[in-house]
Design a protein around this nucleic acid. Structure first.
Lengths: 158, 158
DNA sequence: TCAGAAAATGATATATTATAACATTTCATC
DNA sequence: GATGAAATGTTATAATATATCATTTTCTGA
């Protein structure tokens, strides 16, 4: 069994750091500005293994001493999702950092209803099944939402 | 190519009628009351090929002369979704009638971003891919959300 | 280097979606 | 018909999201 969810004691700071580096690269490539606000929101999202709501981000920014209004957060989220740096989890109205912002993919999300952690998978079997099903009914895919709720291995066994 | 979305000129009243009959059977089996309010909400949902929001239902009920508040609608929706008579489309915050309330299934939803119509598929390839992916990472599925946005065949070709 | 344009953010207000809490009515059962 | 459970009514408010216009920051080209 592969470990989709992070192991205990993994070096999280390093994940965040590397995510930031990737994000910078993507922004560079797209000629998009990775402003302070966008970087802050991105970092806050990556500091959690859970999906984070816009208002949680707002509160976190406020706690950091910023005086921030909802539109500011939503704009940053819009920017980050458009670049694929962050994904929206529709069934949670919340946002989650993307591991692989550098390549096009149909992502799938496993959401543990016990511990709240989220993990992104890029499973080609699932993606292909979706693409094939769409093709078979003459449907042209623009975007997909695949969210799977249940118990992660840790929570199921403990 | 199979036709997932309804053809022009299909007998819609008959669809609604048969959905009502199915719903009654399910409620009967579950010893649940198919009250006037629930029937009204269910019927309104089935009268559309689009997903319908709670407040659209509220407006429709108001237009019918009822004086209805949000909790009433949300309660009916909760009841209907729990029995599987209606599905919630997470990416639209809206509700859609289920064709097959009588059997357990992992449904998938095709949502046309042009005409707004929604179609439910129960594609075993997709379901199996999801189940297999979950198994491979030790994840216990409780619920799945598979929503595919794009252009239906009609809209793509016209 | 600085003027002008474009992009980003600030600020205010409000729209949309959803639920908590308690009162009343309806319904099945005895 | 009395009783309790289920459903609905009613009021208030929470949670999520966006429209609009003002201001600031950044980029670009002369």
């Amino acid at each position: 069994m592969s470990d989709l969810f992070p192991k205990k004691g993994h070096d999280h700071d390093r994940c965040v750091h590397s995510a930031l580096a990737q994000a910078e690269k993507v922004c560079d490539r797209e000629n998009a500005r990775f402003t302070d606000m966008r970087r802050k929101v991105f970092t806050l999202i990556w500091q959690s293994h859970k999906a984070v709501t816009a208002y949680e981000l707002l509160d976190a920014l406020t706690a950091e001493g910023q005086r921030v209004q909802p539109p500011t957060v939503y704009r940053a989220l819009e920017f980050l999702t458009e670049l694929g740096l962050v994904h929206r989890i529709e069934s949670l109205n919340a946002y989650f950092g993307c591991d692989r912002p550098d390549c096009e993919h149909l992502g799938q999300y496993f959401i543990c209803t016990d511990c709240g952690r989220v993990a992104e998978a890029v499973n080609e079997d699932m993606s292909n099944a979706v693409r094939k099903a769409a093709r078979s009914v003459g449907f042209t895919i623009q975007a997909t939402t695949v969210e799977i709720k249940g118990l992660c291995h840790d929570c199921a066994t403990h």
